[in-house]
Simulated scan of single mutants.
Amino acid sequence: MTAPPRPTTTLWRPTGPVELELVRESGWRAWPPRLPEQPIFYPVLNEEYAVRIARDWNVKHDGSGYVTRFEVDTEFLRRYPVRRAGGRTILELWVPAEELDEFNAHVVGGIEVVHEFH
């Protein structure tokens, strides 16, 4: 008898074309390491917030923006308190760059693109 699947939490990540290509190269399974000036990885808890960032920031700075959706083991995520970065729906998790490999190990299934802006 197999164990029931562990509960997961849906997260979104607004991203530009460079980061998205690195996710593609991982087989849609992992987020790339942070750059030295990026000490935190910020997945968000609200699709609308991710859309706003991808559409309004990534397009302006990178020429295109994407919203990805992925599932992460809920129990693992409890180590990261939810951070409010503005209004009541502007919620993020702050994952230290040095913990990103462990975070990626708790991604369940693949990372998928759900919105694209140019």
Rank of each mutant, 00 (worst) to 15 (best):
M1C: 07
T2Y: 04
T2E: 13
T2K: 14
P4I: 05
P4C: 00
P4T: 10
P5V: 11
P5E: 12
P5L: 10
P7M: 10
P7G: 06
T8V: 15
T8E: 08
T9A: 11
L11H: 06
R13V: 00
R13P: 00
R13M: 02
P14N: 01
P14V: 01
G16C: 02
E19M: 07
L20S: 06
L20K: 08
E21P: 02
E21H: 13
E21Q: 15
E21V: 05
L22K: 12
V23W: 00
E25G: 02
E25T: 10
S26D: 08
G27Q: 04
G27T: 05
G27S: 09
G27R: 02
R29N: 01
P32I: 05
P32D: 09
P33N: 13
L35K: 12
P36H: 02
P36R: 05
E37N: 14
E37D: 14
E37R: 11
P39T: 09
F41I: 03
Y42P: 01
P43F: 05
P43N: 06
V44Y: 03
L45E: 02
N46W: 08
E48N: 05
Y49K: 02
A50L: 09
V51K: 13
N58F: 12
V59N: 06
D62Q: 14
G63A: 07
G63Y: 05
G63F: 06
S64R: 14
Y66G: 03
V67P: 01
R69N: 00
F70M: 05
F70R: 04
E71T: 01
E71N: 09
D73H: 03
T74S: 15
E75H: 11
F76D: 04
F76E: 05
R78W: 06
R78I: 00
R79W: 00
Y80L: 05
Y80S: 05
Y80W: 10
Y80C: 08
V82L: 03
V82F: 05
R83D: 10
R84I: 09
R84Y: 12
G86A: 08
L91P: 02
E92C: 10
W94P: 00
V95I: 15
V95M: 00
P96E: 10
P96R: 07
A97I: 03
E98A: 09
E99H: 14
E99D: 15
E102A: 14
E102Q: 11
E102N: 06
F103K: 07
N104D: 09
H106V: 08
H106Y: 12
G109L: 07
G110T: 12
G110F: 04
I111Q: 03
I111P: 02
V114S: 00
H115W: 11
E116H: 15
F117T: 04
F117V: 08
F117P: 07
H118N: 12
H118D: 15
